[in-house]
């Protein structure tokens, strides 16, 4: 029997992990504003954890979620309340809060048993609005719309304060999340997810329990998002409901789609692409656009995002990862490429 990853070249993964851990040193060496880059990378890391979970839900299982920021919010607020108000250690909260977000995913999975496609998109969108409103209403714990200050995480007696510490905390979690996501996708559960995406009827006929696996998909996705939420709350030190609006949920879907739905590496690539674009390249372009057009910075950003997403959906539905696969296949069979195949 063949091993799970036998036909895949995994030698580059230790190299990549080494690169990830050396990157801050390199940045410090190369630029003066390395703290800003670290901050951007931290945000990308948090979002990667979430989009890996979202990819398992949307890319693998084919269930649309337009309210994933709500799970992020649940994770963030739960952890903030547990650590700061109930006095539970951060390490335990890192386990409990994602579970609670996962349970919410379970709840939203119930309607998903009966409805699919656009209806599910609407339901999750409504779920996003409802969660946001609930957080504002539970004023005693969440301080309403005013936001909540969150303490720094304490792990094994060590307080994680600087961007530098956060970077290592977050990217350790990112690596765990990506590995977990890959293992899940290649396991029996992942294959069941893909079967459900390709044809519900066929999956059911092959003995896959639709109810169980759809709920599981939502649960796992909520788990990842809650995990990201905990890190978000404790590294950002301040959370308010404005952080978790519907546009963010749509950004997450854009990240998954641009990266390539249905591949974990794609989710990682897409998230990095969008976050770096958002924080590094758009500000650069803004200066240039401002030289001939006087507009609001946020609008330019929105326009660029909308255009990118639109062009990707029309011209490159497989996303960045799909592009990379095409390039790889092209070079593998290099001199014998059939014409007009790789356009």
């Amino acid at each position: 029997m063949k091993g799970r990853y036998e036909d895949e070249n995994l030698n580059w993964i230790p190299l990549l992990i080494g690169f990830v851990f050396l990157l801050p040193f390199f940045l410090q060496f190369a630029t003066y504003s390395y703290k800003y880059y670290l901050f951007v990378l931290n945000m990308a890391g948090i979002y990667i954890i979430l989009t890996v979970g979202l990819d398992l839900l949307s890319g693998y299982t084919g269930l649309i979620s337009l309210g994933h920021a709500a799970f992020l919010a649940i994770g963030a607020y739960t952890s903030a309340i547990l650590v700061d108000q109930a006095g539970i250690p951060f390490f335990l909260s890192l386990i409990i809060s994602p579970l609670i977000a996962g349970l919410f995913g379970f709840v939203i999975g119930f309607p998903a048993l009966r409805i699919t496609g656009m209806y599910l998109g609407l339901t999750t969108m409504g779920f996003g609005f409802i969660v946001k409103r609930l957080i504002i209403s539970l004023r005693e714990w969440t301080h309403g719309a005013g936001g909540l200050d969150v303490s720094s995480p304490v792990l094994f007696g060590y307080t994680i304060k600087s961007d530098w510490d956060n970077y290592y905390l977050i990217f350790t979690c990112v690596i765990i999340a990506v590995v977990l996501g890959r293992r899940l996708a290649k396991s029996k559960i992942g294959r069941a997810f893909m079967a459900i995406r390709d044809s519900e009827q066929a999956a059911e006929a092959s003995g896959i329990n639709l109810a169980k696996y759809k709920m599981l998909a939502f649960f796992i996705s909520g788990l990842f998002a809650g995990f990201a939420g905990v890190l978000f709350a404790h590294t950002n030190h301040f959370i308010s409901t404005d952080h978790f609006d519907m546009l963010l949920s749509i950004y997450f879907i854009i990240m998954v789609l641009v990266g390539g739905a249905g591949s974990i590496y794609g989710a990682v690539l897409g998230t990095l692409f969008i976050v770096l674009l958002d924080n590094l390249y758009v500000p650069m372009m803004e200066d240039w656009i401002h030289s001939f057009l006087n507009t609001n910075a946020g609008d330019i950003q929105l326009l660029i995002f909308g255009l990118i997403m639109f062009l990707f959906i029309i011209f490159q539905p497989m996303g960045l990862y799909g592009m990379w696969l095409k390039v790889r296949i092209y070079w593998k069979i290099f001199p014998f490429n059939p014409r007009k195949r790789f356009t």
Binding site: I64, G117, I254
Partner: peptide
């Protein structure tokens, strides 16, 4: 349907920005 939904959402973002 997934792509269609996302395409119209991106259209809405583009229109709002423009």
């Amino acid at each position: 349907i997934f792509s269609v939904i996302m395409a119209t959402i991106s259209l809405s973002i583009i229109l709002r920005a423009i």
